[in-house]
Amino acid sequence: MKTNNPLVSIITINYNESDVTIEMLESLNNLSYKNVEVIVVDNASPNDNPERIKEKFPEVTLIKSTKNLGFAGGNNIGVNAAQGEYLLFINNDTIVPDGFIEPLVETLDKDETIGMVSPKIKFHWDPTLIQYAGYTPMNHWTIRNNSIGYHQKDDGDYDKPGETESIHGAAMMVPRRVIEKVGLMTEIYFLYYEEHDWAQAIKRAGYKVYYQPKSYILHKESLSTGKFSPLKTYYISRNRIVYARRNFKPLHLLVSMLFQTLVSIPKNTVTFLIKRQFRHLRAFWKAIFWNVTNHKIIHS
């Protein structure tokens, strides 16, 4: 077990949300763990002035991408600039309590077989409710997983740390040595499913994915993309299939694609039609055709 206080690089992405990012950075100012560097990657915001972040927090490293590279691409820019032994990827639409870093660092210090760890995540609009306390396995039919404890009261029932099937991209800490062995997040997804893909790659490398409820954050959730937008419909629908193509074994992939073709695609099409959600319908079918026309996906 290590006894030092390793440098933690905190990486977050800004996209048209300087005010939101500034609120998160203000909460980071109160951290009891002081050996940190903070890196903000602006993902080529078209309707924002990210320089406001640097003006208010001159100690922060602000990197302005010339192109919107999505969740993975933006975070990868941050990784390449980071100096820390541990890298904490955190959404800009979060608020953190002062002591949330220490349990994550201690978890990784105590067990080098742990490749990534997420805290408990609670809703900012109601901190008594849980958003994430680990994940169930990815279903081979639906290509969906469930967040354990979702919308449940934070009454102590989800306070046991341990291995979990996948990580939550809103807050995840990964040792640099693991990234150097496994590689960066793949940028094929742009939005959604990339953290699950990365978690699978890290598990295949022999590491554990961990949930640590001694730490928590408050999550405002989906401010950049909207809680239910055509953009979200497109990327979740597209990337659900991309994830299966990259991570499922041949038999599981066959089962999944049969289910998508015979059940999921017809059901979603009818649902969007009945609800007259035509923009979502177009986004959904655009996602399906993307997978049909893009045969060559680099596999893990």
Rank of each mutant, 00 (worst) to 15 (best):
L254T: 10
I10S: 03
K286N: 04
T225V: 01
P103T: 07
D155R: 12
N5E: 13
K267P: 00
S45H: 15
D159A: 12
S222I: 08
S264A: 12
V8N: 00
Y150T: 13
I53W: 00
E26F: 05
V292G: 09
R240F: 04
H295N: 10
I130A: 07
M185T: 04
K2F: 08
K160S: 03
P175D: 03
M257D: 15
L28R: 03
E59I: 06
V182M: 04
K64G: 01
I274P: 04
E195Q: 10
K286I: 02
Y86M: 02
S27P: 13
T233E: 08
G226S: 13
H140N: 09
T136H: 11
R245S: 04
L129H: 08
K160C: 02
P127Y: 00
T261D: 04
G74C: 05
N291C: 08
L87G: 04
N30H: 13
V174N: 07
I297C: 13
N76H: 03
F284N: 00
S32Q: 11
I130R: 02
L258T: 15
H219C: 02
Y192T: 15
K120T: 01
K56E: 14
P266V: 10
F284I: 02
Q200K: 08
K64Q: 05
S18T: 04
E51V: 15
L69Q: 07
Y235D: 08
L258M: 15
T136A: 11
A44P: 01
V255L: 15
T128K: 06
V242Q: 01
N30C: 05
R238G: 02
M1F: 14
L25P: 01
T136I: 12
S18C: 06
G74P: 02
N30K: 07
I236Y: 07
V41I: 15
H196V: 06
T269W: 13
D19Q: 14
